[in-house]
Amino acid sequence: MRRLLYSIAWIVVYLILVLAPLLVLLIGQERPGRELWREFSIALGFVGLSMMGLQFLLTSRFRPVVRPFGIDVVYHFHRQISIIAFLFILAHPIMLFAFNPRLLSLLNPFTAPLSAIFGLSALILLALVVFLSLGRLRINLKYEPWRITHGLFATGAVILAMLHVLEVGYYIDTPAKRALWIVLGVFWVGTLFYMRILKPILMVRRPYRVEEVRAERGNTHTVVFQPEGHNGMRFRPGQFAWLTVWASPFSIMEHPFSFSSSSLEKGKVALSIKELGDFTSRVKEITPGTRAYLDGPYGVFSIDYHPAPGYVFLAGGVGITPVMSMLRTLADRNDQRPVYLFYGSKDWEGTTFREDIEALKTRMNLTVFYVLEEPTEGWDGPVGYITPDLLAENLPQNRVELTYFICGPELMMQAVEDALDRLGIPPDQLTAERFNLV
């Protein structure tokens, strides 16, 4: 209930911040109004700019904002709302041109005033930001260069848009309006300062040292971190953190990974990382003693946020990592509630953590179903994918009372969500973790 109230409060704050320019324009209005379409177009430009400015706050992982929603919701919201904000901003010049075609001359960079050049450049940069984010995988743009260009282009776009407003000048002619833009500007720059300067300083003061890099089955490595000169972090099983290694926290070379260790382990934390891309393929090269920085914990994919009489974990591939953390924590807590694990893997050899899972069975009330895509000869377990039939046959009678955690590749998650829906599992008893935040 408290989380819901905080969520609503943040939505109201968001709306107020987005609409602040329009409120000030109405309050401090001294000039006569202009044509309806022109005012509408300008209103869309202003709210679009506010929304873009607020995007920095959404991705700053500012805890009071992240906590009530969960970081996955905040990041997906950031992605979706950016498309809407871009459409508003795009509508701004289109409506002006439609209303007054003579304004099309502003598109000529040789004759256009500075205000139009700033506005157009901001729009082009924003279009690039949106295009590169939505099409990153399709055009094979790697995460690191995308992340750098994303930050630079977005900051550039907002600065250019602010310059556009200042240069047009029509809406900054009273002290109240000037004050508004100064406050908004300070707020946006403040968010950037928090993200790029203050937070890295705090991280530098809380470093970790790599204690061990352990090879696991399925091209996965577990990296164990020991806090250096501090008590480490307390996380909930199933959560994740952003890892920076071989770089300073001031660089933005950080990657999100789930904890795989028990949350009851004192000090030490472990992340398990599967070789999937540039950075993850180099994790095995990390040597013990290397300094690292962790920003976290984040996420609400945790049994601690979803009390239930029993749990069902549905994991595919590396999706087993946060599940391992929850299983290990349940065992360490001597929790004897029934737990079912449906674990889809390519083959038996590459089934990550299978020995650890077998060992956990002796310490807790755990039932495991391995599902192999490519079984070896003699395999008598389920083959292929986690299907509705497999779930229907093996879930207990009280399955609608249990809480379900799903983590794995997108297609597997979709299929499992559909299967659970067909089995009559209420949607609010499903929690899914998607690794593709960006």
Binding site: I11, Y14, L15, V18, L19, L22, L25, L26, Q29, P32, G33, R34, E35, L36, W37, R38, E39, F40, A43, L44, V47, M51, G70, D72, V73, V74, Y75, H76, F77, R79, Q80, I81, I84, F88, E417, P427, L430, T431, A432, R434
Partner: peptide, 30 residues
């Protein structure tokens, strides 16, 4: 599920902002 929630939240907020921007234009415009 949570992705859908984020999408719906973004669309709802987008619509509210669009409506309020239109109301502003109605008040301000001639």
């Amino acid at each position: 599920m949570r992705k859908t929630l984020a999408n719906q939240l973004a669309i709802a907020i987008g619509i509210i902002i669009l409506i309020l921007a239109a109301i502003y234009a109605l008040i301000q415009g001639t």
